[in-house]
């Protein structure tokens, strides 16, 4: 299911449709019905991460951020090993007590810290890239302050004109408290 990828900027090839929900289960019903009708290309918007939404929209597709984490941690541990051993081999002084030049137990601590640092920084990078941050250009219909408060939403930023009526009916039928199309989707209040 490739639902929530339609993050449009500016020009509209299709029509905007927005459904606002007061209840989580009704929005899930909406997602279900849209999927069953074979309609894709919508964004879901919610004030909090709910696993039900993730399961409904991204069924069986774990976030690829985990690969960034793995690569970052591996890069980190390798850099930790290289920076310590190469610099010590560059100046191969035998310390009093006869410790080896490349002494893994002492370098393990630096390697551990580098693993954490590399893993965390790559995770951050992965999250920023995959979540599309900064995302100032999100469609105006998505930029609805009610969605950070207590409402849930299903937003089509470019629904095809022939589907628009069906979508409106589906959203209404699933219990949306407000369904708007076109420029009416833009919710303008200075302060909520």
């Amino acid at each position: 299911m490739s639902g929530a990828h339609a993050q449009s900027e500016g020009s509209h090839a299709g029509i905007r449709v927005k459904g606002v929900y007061a209840h989580l289960d009704e929005m899930l019903t909406g997602i279900d019905r849209l999927k069953k009708a074979g309609i894709n290309g919508f964004d879901v918007v919610a004030p909090l991460p709910r696993h039900e939404i993730e399961e409904a929209v991204y069924e069986g597709q774990p976030s690829p951020v985990r690969w960034w984490t793995l690569i970052g941690a591996m890069t980190g541990i390798t850099s930790g090993l290289l920076i310590t051993s190469l610099t010590h081999m560059d100046w191969p002084m035998i310390m009093p007590g006869g410790k080896p030049v490349v002494s893994l137990p002492t370098f393990a601590i630096i390697m551990f810290e580098c693993t954490i640092l590399g893993g965390a920084m790559f995770t951050l990078l992965g999250m920023i890239i995959h979540a599309g941050l900064p995302s100032f250009g999100l469609d105006k219909a998505i930029q609805d302050p009610r969605f950070s408060d207590d409402k849930f939403g299903i937003v089509f930023t470019r629904a095809s004109t022939k589907d628009a009526d069906r979508i409106v009916d589906l959203l209404r039928g699933s219990g949306a408290i407000e369904v708007t199309t076109g420029d009416d989707t833009i919710y303008e209040v200075p302060n909520v």
Binding site: L48, E54, S63, A131, G132, L138
Partner: peptide, 15 residues
């Protein structure tokens, strides 16, 4: 530009 879209929450929660 955070808006709480499904895409944002999904990667946010994983990270």
């Amino acid at each position: 530009g955070w808006r709480g879209t499904g895409r944002q929450w999904r990667h946010f929660a994983a990270a």
